[in-house]
Design a protein around this nucleic acid. Sequence first.
DNA 1: GATGAATGAGCATTCATTCAT
DNA 2: GATGAATGAATGCTCATTCAT
Lengths: 207, 207, 207, 207
Amino acid sequence: MPKIVDKDAKRKEILRAAMRVFAEKGVTETKMADVARAAGIGKGTIYEYFQSREQLFQSAFEYLLRKIKAMMVSQIDESLSPPEKIRTGFLAYLDVTTMQIEDFAEILLDFWAYAIRNKDNADNITLDIRNRYQEFRDLTIPILEEGIQKGIFKPHNTEFVASAIIAAGDGLLLQWMADKHHFDLKATAETILNIILEGITNHSNDD
Amino acid sequence: MPKIVDKDAKRKEILRAAMRVFAEKGVTETKMADVARAAGIGKGTIYEYFQSREQLFQSAFEYLLRKIKAMMVSQIDESLSPPEKIRTGFLAYLDVTTMQIEDFAEILLDFWAYAIRNKDNADNITLDIRNRYQEFRDLTIPILEEGIQKGIFKPHNTEFVASAIIAAGDGLLLQWMADKHHFDLKATAETILNIILEGITNHSNDD
Amino acid sequence: MPKIVDKDAKRKEILRAAMRVFAEKGVTETKMADVARAAGIGKGTIYEYFQSREQLFQSAFEYLLRKIKAMMVSQIDESLSPPEKIRTGFLAYLDVTTMQIEDFAEILLDFWAYAIRNKDNADNITLDIRNRYQEFRDLTIPILEEGIQKGIFKPHNTEFVASAIIAAGDGLLLQWMADKHHFDLKATAETILNIILEGITNHSNDD
Amino acid sequence: MPKIVDKDAKRKEILRAAMRVFAEKGVTETKMADVARAAGIGKGTIYEYFQSREQLFQSAFEYLLRKIKAMMVSQIDESLSPPEKIRTGFLAYLDVTTMQIEDFAEILLDFWAYAIRNKDNADNITLDIRNRYQEFRDLTIPILEEGIQKGIFKPHNTEFVASAIIAAGDGLLLQWMADKHHFDLKATAETILNIILEGITNHSNDD
DNA sequence: GATGAATGAGCATTCATTCAT
DNA sequence: GATGAATGAATGCTCATTCAT
């Protein structure tokens, strides 16, 4: 009778260990031996769960993206007004990437660099960075449309505005990563949120 | 008498060759042999002009940043109105990073990843990513202040807004890099510029 | 369960292979690839047992010195008379350095050159050539003192005489290495031993 | 009209510069560029005077040996008694190798290592370490024979004793090099000289 | 003659991956 | 299933030597 192991659980354990090391030393600097040590297993064992270093990295990327999206979706309550949904989703994105113990943001940058570099030969559709951004837009656009329909937002090109919102989020992350201790992420996030929401709000019926 | 060589010119030549390769294959994947081949010189020759791979990389980074800033500064004409200055600077940033033959944007991402990873032990102040962002803010803040003073912009925290504008620029670059062919950088840039400028413009005297 | 290996045994195996190559081509000319080939292993494997080429070399040095001293000590029987101890130790030194398959003497010269060149920054006390010579003196001086005390040797500065005896041994090795086939090491050793012992023997009670 | 240069003088200048560097950093660590810098000339110029690094090294060796021997010969005055000649020659050897600014002794060790390693394929007879030792013996043996003939020395195998004397000198040098500051070269030299001379002196006619 | 810029063969070392146990 | 010892391809860098000027 073979030892019964929850393969999926162990796989996830290794993944989390890998992400911890990725976050700490950077993807490039992370050796398979580091991951093994962090996971408390032997080097060879990693290969029982991942075909290669590349695949381990891609799985970590996938896991991270899935987690970010899930977190955002879970926060955007259907009962909220469109502006509140935008605000909540925006802040959730920053939250999940900056507050998690795995130090998501640090890894995210390595992931971006990798994804953009390999966008054309992504064998895995989940990894295609183009799909990633499209997903985020597809999360945002319906909210904008809802707002327009309800007369809360001015009519506008929802695709461009969605892209702009996402851009603002990513750009803030970048500056925060550059100087975590001094950059006031929260305040700057509020500033840009207010500007954007102010910019798309329909004031015509304010009287 | 030995061969006379314009050391500075040759150094720059190598630098440009290196940046071409960095752009094409990514910094991590670039071997010294690749750079040598691209520059049409021997491997050893690189070391006559740069102490190490690391230094070559840092020099490229420096060169790129200097070029971006110079381009922006040269475009922001003193005779322009504050909103026009913001618009011009913003577009110049996107222009220089996306239009140059060296394919600046691709490299920029590797640079960011590197700079953020090494922000604490940056032995070279020019490279410290925190200084970089501060410089960009210092370029933007006076324009915002000028606008406020002239009553064109509403009073606002210029530091936060400057950060927000920079964030928008970086975030747009990221999405454009992810999908150069389909992402409409120009239109999205205009969208966000309009939203931001609209958001900070003083409408109180609109009657 | 992984392959079980006697790490210490393998380490020694590599060390002996390294010494064989050192002896054959000289330390400076020995490449890591040569050692690997001689040991019948892959290049990378050496690094599983030694941190660096330098450390491999130092370990070989250490091993050699330990072996020489052990051999000498084992030969100097406590029941021997002081002159016999001197003779035995002296000849043992020459024996072990000239008779061993590893061709100790050839390596010894490289070691000397290395040790003397690095005497001031010896991070390893075992390697400090000054300690080495002191050890040999500390082996010799008690024998001289015993001889003086028993009235067999004339009173003399035991430190200087010990150094002289050691010098004679090293100098003989040098000449032997220069011309192994023609230099009569044995006879010259006997000659100098006789001269030295004659020189320190107490003849006052010869009547 | 070509610049008139004393080729021999310049060659010697380079040689002396090379020896200075050899002494300071060790032969192995000395780069051609170091020699050029020390000689105040260009790297390429060395090759106008020496065919290769190897040849430069061999020439330095040759120069050193020639100088040592010349110094010894010049000191051994014909009017001295055989024991005084032995003593004078012995001390001259130690003197010239330890007192010269070029720090002869340090180089000597590298030379020995090199010479012994290459004794069989010495293309230059001057360098053959076997010849070197033979020369020193040929300098010593006639003195011993003179002493025997004059009845000052006991009859003995002059070849062996000559070798023994030379061995003592080399061995002392080795210990001195290992610990220049604490090893009392002079006193130990006197000790061994006394022992050797005492050992070969003819006491039969002491009455 | 003199030079030093250019070169590339050569080498120590790293590390993802394999596989015998 | 798990392991880590073994491996060798890959790479940054050095430096003796060359040769155009």
